[in-house]
Amino acid sequence: MRIGIPRALFYYQYFPLWKTLFEALGYEVVLSQPTNKEILRQGIELCVDDACLPIKIFHGHVANLIGKVDMIYIPRIVSVEPREYICPKFLGLPDMIKNSVSKIPYIVDAEFNMYKGRYYILYHLLNLCKILNINPSRMLLAYGKAMYAQRQFEKLLVKKSAVPLDIFDQKQEKQSQPYIKEDNNIKVLLLGHNYNIYDDYISMGLIRKLRKHKIDFITCEMVEKNEIQEGNKKLSKDLFWTLGKKTIGTAYYFLERKQVDGVIHIASFGCGPDSLVGELIEKRIKREFKIPFLNLNIDEHAGEAGFNTRLEAFLDVLEGMKYFEDNISTYG
């Protein structure tokens, strides 16, 4: 049996878990192609009009899997952290797909809800057992392996400051030079949802471009959970959804410690939490930290010129300021 996983949204967060789990259960895991023009086109065509770009692209990835797999894994993700919810678009994703995409294979849409506690993952697994007709003990064994793989993956992100693509795509890793950080490099905080930042097509190759310019970057995935929590303490009240909380916690943690030279925020057009989070961070930076902040909105626009102009100008600003600081620091 072949099970398909769309290369979008939480693929960037949970792929090692999902892959190991299904392979241990004897499935062949098939990924959709990396995001490309055709996938974007299909996504826009299939998806309801007012969804955000990553959701539209997800539709395209599902369409890309049609005919290549026997079933597609689209869990109904309600909550990934205790006492927190996630964007409702994740919650309704299996329904959106079933409604908008025709001739789809069977959708494995077991609920994934850890609102009441982490161990509630068991319900997800039991659900999967029922749907896929698998012995629960076999499932648990597979889950143990999968969890180990996921932990290893998360460790690499935090300790080695890797990005998911370096790890997932072993072939690519061999081709590209291992990335070496230098103390003197400009360091920016790269904020935004992992499925926007790490998707080379959506983010218009932002990570490639930053590496080419020898700019070090920190993303929300490279930060320990307790650090994010500490950053969030600066807010009088916790933000509503997990992803926004992660972004703002990371931002506040690093801003407080003055460890970055600038901040880039990638927001997808039409994302409610993004617009709020971007504004909150920008205001705080303006008030207290006086470092450059760049907000980039991404949508279906294919022209890279506007994106590049803003990014290049921002990098010039960072360089200019660093150079200027170095100049005055020698005089104390």
Binding site: P292, G306, T309, A313, V317, G320, M321, F324
Partner: peptide, 12 residues
Amino acid sequence: RNKTVVDFAMNT
């Protein structure tokens, strides 16, 4: 500020 560009914005 101080002969250095510190911030900019373009129309969206």
